[in-house]
Amino acid sequence: MNILTYLIPISLILGGLGLAFFVFTIRSNQYDDPEGDARRILSDAYDDKPKQD
């Protein structure tokens, strides 16, 4: 059962990374225009001015 000493912290850290990443996406307004972002990827023009604020 000693393996738990590694597995539990590892799983918690990985989950925590996921959570931190999700918080980052919220804070950087990545859910403002889900439909537009889904379509923009189809446009061949390089999107060099993503909305910053």
């Binding site: 225009d33 537009g36 379509r39």
Partner: peptide, 8 residues
Amino acid sequence: AARVNLTL
């Protein structure tokens, strides 16, 4: 600058 928001 101009930015379209398709959702809105």
